[in-house]
Amino acid sequence: MDPAANLAFFQNLYAGAALYVVAEPAAGPTAPLPAPKPVGPAAAAAPALPPALNPEPTPVPAPTPVVAAPQPPAPAPVQPPVAVAPPVAVAPPAAAAPAPATQPQSSQPQLAQPQLAQPLGTRPLANLPAAAQAPAGRVQPTPTESPVAHIPFSTLGSNPHGLVILVRLPAEQFRKLPRNVFLNNLLKALRLVMEDVVLVNVEHEKYPVALCSLRRELAARQLLAFGKNLLDVAVYTTQPYEPVLLYGDTAFLGAGEIDMLEYDAGRKKQLWQAVQRMFLG
Rank of each mutant, 00 (worst) to 15 (best):
L125T: 03
A97L: 08
L125F: 08
A91I: 07
Q113G: 07
P104M: 00
P109L: 13
P124R: 08
Q103D: 07
V88G: 12
N127V: 11
S107M: 12
A91Y: 08
A83T: 13
T122A: 13
V84I: 15
A99V: 14
P92F: 02
Q115E: 15
A99E: 14
A130Y: 13
P104W: 00
V90P: 02
A130E: 15
Q110W: 07
A95D: 12
Q115N: 07
Q115S: 14
R123Y: 05
P80N: 06
A99C: 05
T102K: 10
A117C: 05
A96P: 00
A117L: 02
P100K: 05
A130D: 15
V84K: 12
L125N: 00
T102E: 11
A91T: 14
A117P: 01
A89W: 09
S107I: 09
A130R: 09
A96D: 08
P104R: 00
A99I: 09
Q110L: 13
L120D: 00
G121P: 02
A130H: 13
Q110F: 06
S107V: 08
S106T: 12
A96I: 04
P86D: 02
Q118M: 14
Q108K: 07
P81V: 00
P119C: 12
T102R: 11
Q115W: 06
A95W: 12
S106V: 11
L128R: 00
S106F: 08
P87E: 13
P100D: 09
L125Y: 02
P86V: 00
P100A: 10
P114L: 02
A94P: 01
A96W: 05
A117E: 01
A126H: 01
P119H: 10
P104T: 00
S106N: 07
P124H: 09
L125D: 01
P100Q: 07
A130N: 14
V84T: 15
P92M: 09
Q110P: 04
V84W: 13
P98D: 06
P100S: 02
P104V: 01
L128A: 02
Q103T: 12
L116M: 14
P81G: 00
R123I: 04
P87T: 05
A96M: 08
P98Q: 05
S106E: 12
P129W: 03
A101T: 10
Q103A: 10
R123C: 11
P80F: 03
P81C: 01
P124Y: 03
P87L: 10
P104G: 00
A89Y: 08
A126F: 00
A101Q: 12
P129T: 08
P92W: 05
P87Q: 05
Q103L: 14
P124G: 01
V82Y: 09
Q118E: 15
P81K: 02
P93C: 04
A112M: 11
P124N: 03
P86G: 02
P86F: 01
P119K: 06
V88C: 08
